[in-house]
Design a protein around this nucleic acid. Structure first.
Lengths: 198, 198
DNA sequence: TATTTACTGTAGCACCCGCTACGTGTATAT
DNA sequence: ATATACACGTAGCGGGTGCTACAGTAAATA
């Protein structure tokens, strides 16, 4: 005899929250302005999600680790690059996926969280450390598979990951993705020869 | 007949504020906790500086643009690198200066401000954009001086600046400056050959 | 139609924020 | 010694924060 809940409302609200957070950041997120922008009230957000923290967690949980997971899919099974050329192809595919407007939109928020984790690890956890070490670890094993010694592989992986990290952040400032694209491919042109002589 | 002000107090307070901000960031800086940590009161901070904003500006004003200015000194007059080898030397010197613990300490704060400027340009201004374009502009002219075409010079400059930016940020996460150092020198090893054939 | 539940508005709490009004003590130059 | 400006404490204002208590409305089932 009661009235069934409408799952659509909650889901729509969650999507709106996600887009708002992506656009406006986490640092000074406030329930009342957020609710006003969404055409609802803080009361409703707390009704559906109980807590600001749970709301944010739920809104960002779905996609938060997708880039790395996609990359893992791209090379883990048995597709792992066994030569410099295929490693380059992997790098280019990953770059292209990260450059997708879909993922691009997440980058400023990611960056905000990562830098915040440097100064306030108690609040955010070692997010930046985790992201970098996961990517670096992934690539270290790839370089090791190319026949490099452990320290050499670690240096090559760190260089590639950190440099690409920088190339990814720069266009966020001025929107010039073409230049970043050109710089990325030039980087690969210069790095790849070094991957041959193990 | 009155009593003269003591300039030392104000200056000491300013130094303490600067160190606190460097350590704790700007995003959630609050007068009362800051004052408590400094052994004083919010009342005194406002007494000396009038406003939180003015206090922060004064505390960070002195050194905020030093790295770039030092770099300019390093190459502007007539010392501008005229060949790849001297450009490499310039890059290494700049890297070394940025790696100085003295400047290292500023990097997380810089990074926080830069990323905040991406999501809240109204509050911080286009800080990240300015920093990157200034460095890129500087190096573009250097590459042009090496005989490169304009677009080629811009790509090389963007690649070097953005990659170094990434290499500089990574050790902030895990403190591994040795790895960053190795990666940086490997990067130069791979990039320099490309600077010869203009 | 009666009832149960989803949904939503209004007030307000306790706390933190930047900042100010007001008062007091103290060191110094006359 | 006294006047003067520095130095500093206390209390509080107006506003924003996350969150809650209480009430009321709307809708679907029986």
């Amino acid at each position: 005899m009661p009235r069934p809940p409408d799952p659509a409302k909650r889901r729509d609200l969650l999507n709106q929250v996600r887009e708002y957070v992506i656009r406006n950041g986490l640092a000074d997120l406030s329930l009342r302005p957020l609710a006003r922008a969404l055409g609802t009230s803080d009361r409703m957000l707390l009704y559906y999600f109980g807590t600001k923290e749970r709301m944010v967690a739920e809104a960002l949980a779905l996609d938060e680790r997708r880039p790395l997971l996609r990359a893992r899919d791209l090379l883990d099974p048995t597709t792992s690059p066994k030569n410099p050329a295929s490693l380059r192809r992997f790098a280019e595919q990953t770059w292209q996926q990260l450059s997708t407007p879909n993922l691009r939109a997440w980058l400023p928020l990611y960056l905000e969280i990562m830098t915040a984790s440097l100064l306030h690890p108690d609040r955010y956890g070692p997010v930046m450390r985790d992201v970098l070490t996961e990517w670096t670890g992934l690539l270290t094993s790839v370089f090791r598979g190319l026949g490099m010694t452990e320290p050499r592989a670690r240096t090559e992986a760190a260089l590639l990951v950190d440099a690409v990290f920088g190339l990814l952040m720069a266009p966020l400032a001025d929107g010039d993705w073409d230049r970043a694209d050109a710089a990325f491919h030039t980087l690969l042109d210069r790095l790849e020869p070094g991957w041959h002589n193990t």
